[in-house]
Design a protein around this nucleic acid. Structure first.
Lengths: 346, 346
DNA sequence: CTGAAAGCGCTTACAG
DNA sequence: CTGAAAGCGCTTACAG
């Protein structure tokens, strides 16, 4: 029996208790709190005031059980993505998602999933009764998770479009077009022999950016040379290694599919004494905070990572609320940020 | 009425159903699944077999409500930590925690918390009924969260020791001693004028590493020169700026309190044409994957980040199970990794 | 607009 | 060792 004032303040306050204090039934309190229309405005105001005063927090487990809704969103990131630990893209995305969740009074549950999700893991995610929907980042090709999600009828949205299934909702940027423009810009500048360091080709985003590169060349009547396409994996090392492979082929410019890989490419160039942009022009993708601080500052395609995350959250919450959800697709704009890694005069 | 085989497979299977299939009561199934001692081994085996076959997943919301235990752990990282977006330390830690949670059949809920948690947020974390305990990373001085956690009697463990309260459980490395050894090593090598770039001094880890630096100097009878102490914030930019401030003072060596800051310091040195280790010796802290790839490879203090995360999870699960938990403190070993950023002959 | 009651899927004394 | 029953804290038809 510890009823000291101090403790009472932090006691788990139930709806029951709150109802008693407000002199109404549990039902009414529940409706007031959940913004149900059929509540007398005065009653609602009184209930909310008391709830505020007593610092009432609904028990989400109970809510989840009763209503089938917890206001918790799952976030799945496959650890198979090598860049998870080295590319600031992920922390920024996670931060965008987390912050949007807070703003919408939701929480986020994190799944750093093994590349081949075991059956058990998927079911855990979906049947735990703990999450209302899920955001999936960094799709690897044909992910079994997507199939399971669909079969379970769990609302979900992808960050990055799905390669084949047009019924899945996603938020993305137009990677292909953004890259096409970036490479077209290099061509206009006068670069003649432009190579590329790609993202992983088992990721949609990797394929799309490579497509954009090819499209730009073709747009100028240039046949893309397979030799000038070096595969990377979105890591700094990957960019470094790819640049080393490219060096003997003497490109005069390189489009690198991520800033983090561009960092590696610059390291490789520095080692052999090549100067940017004099000996070789470089364009990256992302516009991470570090891009502006590189030497020279990196010309790059800016994508709104935080907004991608926030948009995913908002779409997902919509999907959860919408009784008959149809797939939604949102494409956010990119911007080519001109800095010092491309030579403007030839 | 959709009872096609396919769908049934993914139907949310309840205890009730499972009990029926196994020909026992709900109680028995529950006990079997939760490893309760008083169950006939044969019965248990049968129940588990059926559960496995039907791919039964307990509804965690229901479990949380009934038992007060959800097997969900909260992970709180203050976004006030500037380095969150640039230091791979965090992704690695998160990965360690997530992976250990999976191994122990737990989930992790992520809170990227604003530096001054609003009262409401704290209560949300604690009264949601959704998490059994919390892991707090990167303590900033005297965090109100800790007080709330204690008052709510929620089990929690810190990654990084608490500066003052000896009753809180934590897992940490001995930062002070690790740094003392690193700097002592530089002194033994013959370095005469060793500066340091510190972590934020409102974080315990920042203070501890600076203490270690001072202790090493004093151990050699050298009075630490305040001018040679440049404050950093665990970001690359911070390290860069701090190095620039240090340059005019002409140190011959610098202990940098994180690899990420060392990266920035190296950038500053490169810009002014200083060579490592010939003009200046450098030691970092963390041994991030990139440390070995720097030019020159960075001599640094290795800390087991993944293990820190895993240990935190295990400690927390213990604390949750233990009825009368006493504070636990675990200190993991570090290792000075000798590479090329210190000159060995003078 | 409001309340009494059933129910969400579990766990856990309690009785046997 | 097992089962019937109460209960965790909510929501939501249903009746008024």
């Amino acid at each position: 029996m510890n009823n000291g004032q101090k403790d009472v303040q932090f006691m788990a306050l139930t709806l029951e208790e709150l109802a008693k204090q407000a002199g109404v039934s549990r039902s009414t309190v529940s409706r007031a709190i959940n913004n149900h229309p059929n509540v007398d405005p005065e009653t609602r105001a009184r209930v909310l005031a008391i709830a505020e005063k007593l610092n009432y927090q609904p028990n989400l487990a109970a809510r989840g059980l009763a209503a089938g809704r917890t206001r918790v969103l799952g976030l799945v990131i496959p650890t198979g993505v090598a860049a998870l630990f080295s590319d600031p893209y992920f922390p920024i995305l996670i931060q965008g998602i987390s912050s949007a969740c807070n703003a919408h009074d939701h929480s986020v549950m994190l799944w750093l999933a093994e590349p081949e999700y075991e059956r058990r893991t998927i079911h855990q995610i979906l049947q735990s009764g703990l999450i209302d929907g899920v955001i999936v980042s960094s799709m690897l090709g044909n992910d079994p998770l997507i199939k399971a999600l669909t079969e379970h009828k769990k609302p979900f949205v992808l960050v990055g479009r799905h390669p084949t299934d047009s019924r899945v909702s996603y938020v993305d940027v137009d990677n292909r077009d953004a890259v096409r423009e970036a490479v077209a810009y290099m061509l206009r500048l006068g670069y003649q022999r432009i190579a590329t360091i790609t993202g992983p080709q088992d990721m949609t985003v990797g394929v799309d950016r490579l497509d954009g590169y090819r499209a730009a060349l073709r747009g100028r009547g240039i046949l893309p040379d397979p030799m000038l396409i070096a595969n990377g994996d979105f890591t700094e090392q990957g960019g470094y290694a790819a640049m080393q492979r490219l060096l003997p082929l003497e490109p005069d410019g390189v489009f690198v599919a991520s800033d983090t890989m561009a960092l590696g490419a610059m390291r490789a160039l520095r080692e052999v004494g090549k100067r940017i942009p004099d000996d070789l022009g470089l364009i990256g993708f992302d516009d991470l905070p570090l891009a502006a601080r590189l030497d020279p500052p990196l010309t790059t395609v800016r994508q709104p990572v935080t907004r991608l995350g926030a948009t995913a959250v908002e779409m997902l919450i919509d999907l959860i609320q919408e009784p008959d959800p149809r797939p939604r697709r949102v494409v956010l704009p990119t911007e080519l940020v001109l800095r010092g890694s491309c030579r403007t005069a030839f």
